[in-house]
């Protein structure tokens, strides 16, 4: 069984985002590039499914992004993925959801897979639309928000979170699966894993390997970023130490009254 996991390389989400007031661009300098946190959960799911399947099961990590970020993929290889494939081409810059998922799908067709595991959301773009679009372009079932998954007899059995509870769903392979964070905490890379990752292959694909029949990048995008700005600032309010619970309760109550909230 060939499992492919998509992993986006994003600026560290734990760094406070700042906009340069002059360029109006996100300050990226001094911010480390990391694996999109959701995708680490997707990778954990892939590694668990590989371990359970045993035999000749493999895990390939796939990313689309600038080649300069290639070494960040070693973290995924150190966690236990067998190989990495990167789609990197300057012509992809500025791709929106439509162009990104189209280009990724063409590359993933080349890579091939039995099970494609995608993260639920990116930390930087956060549309959550890429998984659905990928499934359509690839013509495979789309089963999202899995908290448990099992491959049995060529089919995928999934317990998935919904907006109001959970469902069990079954679908045939090949399929696309996205994981909820409840699937399991991503493992740490062991020292052996980190050493081994140095020797694992990272293949680079470019657009000339794919033969696309529509434009990608800025020209192939259906949306255009017009402006971005920081939100209205939310100033730090009052912090008060109280002598006892009664004083605390009254402080809040008086504040709510003043704000006409009670």
């Amino acid at each position: 069984m060939k499992i492919v996991v998509t992993v986006k390389l994003v600026p560290d989400p734990n760094s406070e985002k700042k906009i340069d007031p002059n360029t109006k661009r996100l300050v990226r300098t001094g911010v480390e590039t990391v694996l999109n946190p959701y995708d680490e959960y997707a990778l954990e799911a892939a590694l668990q499914l590989k371990e359970r399947a045993g035999g000749d099961a493999t895990v390939t990590v796939f990313t689309m992004g600038p080649e300069a970020l290639k070494e960040t993929l070693r973290k995924a290889l150190a966690m236990g993925a067998d190989e990495a494939v990167m789609l990197a081409d300057a012509a992809l810059e500025g791709s929106d959801v439509s162009a990104t998922s189209y280009a990724m799908a063409q590359a993933l067709k080349k890579t091939g897979f039995d099970l494609l595991i995608v993260g639920g959301l990116t930390d930087d773009g956060s549309t959550g639309a890429v998984p659905g679009a990928l499934a359509e372009y690839l013509g495979v079932p789309c089963i999202t928000n899995a908290r448990k998954a099992e491959v049995t007899g060529g089919a995928l059995q999934v317990e998935r979170e919904t907006d109001s509870g959970y469902q069990t769903v079954r679908g045939p392979l090949p399929a696309l699966l996205t994981t909820a964070l409840t699937f399991g905490e991503p493992r740490y890379a062991s020292l052996k894993g980190i050493m081994g990752a140095k020797k694992k292959p990272i293949a680079i694909l470019t657009l000339s390997d794919l033969g696309l029949d529509r434009p990608v990048g800025t020209d192939g995008s259906k949306t255009q970023l017009v402006n971005f700005a920081p939100p209205p600032v939310r100033g730090k309010g009052k912090t008060i130490e109280v002598a006892d619970a009664t004083a605390g309760a009254h402080a809040i109550f008086d504040f709510l009254k003043e704000k006409k909230l009670v």
């Binding site: 439509s98 998922s101 549309t127 639309a129 659905g132 990928l134 999202t144 928000n145």
Partner: peptide
């Protein structure tokens, strides 16, 4: 913009060759 809504929206991006504004 719910869990299910995001899935429907993503799939329609490809079906209809559409652009998407999210959230």
């Amino acid at each position: 913009n719910t869990l299910a809504g995001r899935d429907v929206a993503g799939r329609l991006v490809a079906r209809l060759g559409a652009g998407i504004g999210a959230d």
